[in-house]
Design a binder for these strands. Structure first.
Length: 104
DNA sequence: GCGCTTATCGCAC
DNA sequence: GTGCGATAAGCGC
């Protein structure tokens, strides 16, 4: 694991249940502008359940992707999980996104 | 409003 | 040293 990834995971773990964050917010929170590098860090996420990578979305509120896939049954499952937590997702777009967005 | 291009940072090869 | 990526923001049409 790289130091950068550690920062990403640590910050991501600050996001409570029922909340989401964006690559932009997360990246700036760790003091960097490598949005794509953050996405890559989540992709190789070694602690999937611990690090809620499904709570990280794009700046416009869309899921963007998950584990390297933009669509698929796995995505739908995570979306369902998010719905259980209180975050409603419609076709990969966070509903009431502004209110669900967690601020560091 | 939609689509394309440029900017940026960290990591792997 | 070069290229790539789960992005972001700006510009042109």
């Amino acid at each position: 694991m790289t130091p950068f990834q550690k920062l990403v995971y640590d910050k991501l773990k600050e996001v409570p249940r029922g909340r989401v964050t964006t690559y932009k917010a997360l990246t700036e929170a760790i003091g960097s502008k490598a949005y794509r590098a953050v996405g890559n860090a989540l992709k190789v996420n070694p602690m999937a359940p611990q690090v809620p990578c499904h709570r990280v979305v794009k700046a416009n509120g869309s899921i963007g992707g998950f584990m390297g896939f933009k669509t698929g049954p796995a995505i739908d499952k995570k979306i369902k999980l998010l719905a259980t937590e209180g975050v409603q997702v419609e076709k990969g777009i966070i509903q009431n996104f502004s209110s669900k967005l967690h601020q560091f």
